[in-house]
Amino acid sequence: MDEHAPQSDEQIAGRIQKGEKEQFGVLMERYDKKLSRYGRRFLWDKDSIEDIVQDVFISTFKNINNFDTSLKFSSWIYRIAHNAFVNGLKKQQKNSLPNFDFDVFVSHVAYEDPAVEEREYEEMQKLIAGGLDQLKPKYKEAIILHYLEDFSYKEISDILQIPTGTVGVRVKRGREALKKVYEKMNIQTHHD
């Protein structure tokens, strides 16, 4: 095997599990900026974000033997990060993410149409930047993970531990809510 060939996160995680602990540095390099950026969607204080990202890395390292290398490492580490940031948010504000949600009680059909997705992706990137804070937390996190962190519905389902159909519904409703926010602000969102 070519030692210089880029390795997947899962392969590196497998090597760490086998004892190559220093390889954890590669994973930290890959995820440091991503997790800090993700943390900024929840928290404003840069120091708090950096502290939480550090805790996420420590927790990831300690629990790496619990990671199944046949699954996606990114979903796994984002799951740890998501919980850590939500807890950080709970500490900072009373109005934290609610645990109860009717959407997870029943099934929904989630269909990702690549053509529609691509068109809406660019549109949403622009929209998201300013209007996120006006969304309900459950829609906000789904929109962030799908449009800003570029995760599929299936991967988001593993990060948030909710059914894939529920992810689809949250992304759709979040998208509609975001469009309404911009319609109120009289901003053109789509050119047919």
Binding site: M28, F57, K62, N63, N65
Partner: peptide, 27 residues
């Protein structure tokens, strides 16, 4: 720089065995 420091700090702690992985048997 802060990110580098954070990564270096964690790697140092790993080298010094201050950070230990939970064994597979635990899980």
């Amino acid at each position: 720089q802060p990110q580098k420091n954070k990564i270096t700090d964690i790697l140092e702690r790993i080298k010094k065995n201050e950070l230990v992985q939970k064994p597979k048997i635990y899980f």
